[in-house]
């Protein structure tokens, strides 16, 4: 049935074009945001510091409990699993080294990115989608207030500031969680554990994790904003865009993380 096959080809083609268009739109928004961050003052339309702080509170401070709980738990889990696995080789004393590297290079940025995508990427999509449907975006346009400057740039800046800080927090809490189990199980004392953690880590490892968190910040913000601003079809559309934005942001984060790991371990 050639017609059917053509239909599939056509659908795939359309989806691909739409996907590329969205990525292009995201890149455009990133460029515009940077433009306003740099040029806003001279155009007498600065990006408001107050708006950035408000976003940072929402994205960052309110995310602290959940990031702490999850990273502490994952840290302990890594320690438990690590000791269990290494025991087979009689190498359980090496667990600290493994845990320290995996937390700082992989798990802390990944957990933080995923939590923030779930909390704030979706919230951004919902907020912008609702604003679009209520013509609030149009209202900004006709008032001569650029929506990218007013809504997107502050969110992006806040996310860029907050995600690396949350990642640092996740590093610390996850390593503490792991340390508590390791000290208990292997009878090590806590200061000695931290000493070994610091010995195992290079500045590079920390930079690797934080660098990724910066990229995740851009991804989460843009995915949320793009999905929000393309909302169609009322409240139901907002719901769909919200879900879509979480799925897209988490996928983007995981794929980027894998690419990062691949490239940087060559």
């Amino acid at each position: 049935m050639p017609a059917r096959h053509l239909r599939i080809v056509e659908k795939t083609g359309r989806a691909t074009i739409a996907g590329i268009a969205e990525i292009g739109y995201g890149a455009f928004l990133l460029g515009e945001s940077l433009f306003w961050l740099v040029m806003g003052k001279s155009r007498r339309q600065p990006v408001r510091f107050g708006a950035v702080v408000a976003e940072a509170m929402e994205f960052g401070v309110r995310a602290i409990p959940i990031v702490a709980i999850l990273s502490g738990t994952v840290g302990a889990m890594l320690a438990i699993q690590g000791i269990h696995t290494l025991k087979t080789f009689g190498a359980e004393s090496r667990v600290t080294f493994g845990v320290a590297l995996s937390v700082v290079r992989e798990f802390a940025p990944l957990i933080t990115g995923i939590v923030v995508a779930g909390r704030s990427g979706s919230a951004l999509a919902a907020r912008l989608g609702t604003m679009r449907i209520n013509q609030e975006i149009d209202a900004l346009h006709v008032m001569g207030i650029d929506p990218v400057r007013f809504l997107v740039a502050p969110a992006l800046l806040a996310m860029l500031a907050v995600l690396p800080l949350l990642t640092l927090l996740a590093d610390f809490v996850a390593l503490t969680g792991a340390g508590m189990y390791i000290c208990m199980d292997l009878g090590m004392d806590f200061p000695a554990y931290w000493e070994r953690v610091i010995e195992s880590l290079k500045v590079d490892d920390l930079g690797h994790g934080l660098g990724k968190s910066v990229i995740f910040a851009v991804l989460v913000t843009l995915v949320g904003v793009v999905n929000g601003s393309l909302v169609q079809g009322g409240a139901e559309g907002v719901g769909k865009a919200t879900t879509r934005s979480v799925v897209h942001a988490i996928s983007a984060i995981v794929v980027t993380d894998m690419l990062f790991a691949f490239v940087l371990t060559r």
């Binding site: 339309q45 209202a139 346009h141 001569g144």
Partner: peptide, 22 residues
Amino acid sequence: AVEMTKLRTRMGVAFQGGALFS
């Protein structure tokens, strides 16, 4: 863009649903 912004300060719009920022 700059000229348009200037022109827009001389126009006011009341949208159907108000479009007030919630």
